[in-house]
């Protein structure tokens, strides 16, 4: 019917666009995906706040008392983990990737909390309210999966 190659026909182009969108999606969530699939579980002490993200529903913003604050310089940092009873906590902030041991790769803004990919936990509206009360009492620990390159993802909460 037309002389254009099959690769520029409309269905193929649309399919290619859909595939591209899927690839972009995987790229966007790759760190959390990698942590969940290949990571090992660690428990970190956790506290909180509770705002609402307009595009994604209720979430609890998590604060980790065991992890260090930013030390003034911005950029990528690494937090090695050390045992602390039944939980783990961060032992300092490093600029180079540690050679061994569990560590989390974080982004430092130079001030306030480090951003480690584990800052929020999505919950339905009613669960968010209950979680807020329990987290506020400082009785909870976050179950975090961390993979070999420091990507971390929150998978749930548990009592300390």
């Amino acid at each position: 019917m037309n002389s254009r190659s099959v690769f520029s026909s409309r269905p193929v182009l649309v399919a290619a666009a859909l595939v591209l969108q899927a690839v972009l999606l995987v790229v966007a969530v790759a760190p959390q995906l990698s942590a969940r699939v290949t990571g090992m579980e660690y428990r970190l002490a956790v506290g909180l706040v509770d705002p609402i993200d307009p595009l994604r529903g209720a979430y609890a913003q998590l604060d980790y008392p065991g992890l260090p604050r930013a030390d003034g310089r911005s950029g990528p940092v690494y937090v090695p983990l050390a045992r602390d009873g039944g939980l783990w906590k961060g032992s300092g902030v490093m600029r180079q990737r540690p050679a061994s041991g569990p560590y989390i790769a974080c982004e430092s803004a130079g001030y306030a909390r480090l951003s480690c990919g584990i800052d929020s936990l999505f919950l339905s509206q009613d669960k968010a309210l209950r979680a807020q009360n329990e987290l506020g009492g400082n009785r909870m620990a976050a179950i975090v999966k961390i993979d070999a390159t420091g990507n971390a993802a929150v998978v749930g909460l548990a009592p300390r």
Binding site: Q32, Q61, S115, F122, A153
Partner: peptide, 20 residues
Amino acid sequence: IFQAAQSLQVPAYSSSLLGV
């Protein structure tokens, strides 16, 4: 995109999802 991010607990307030 938003459902995947939600299920995997990608941190809220990241602009990268809008970019994707």
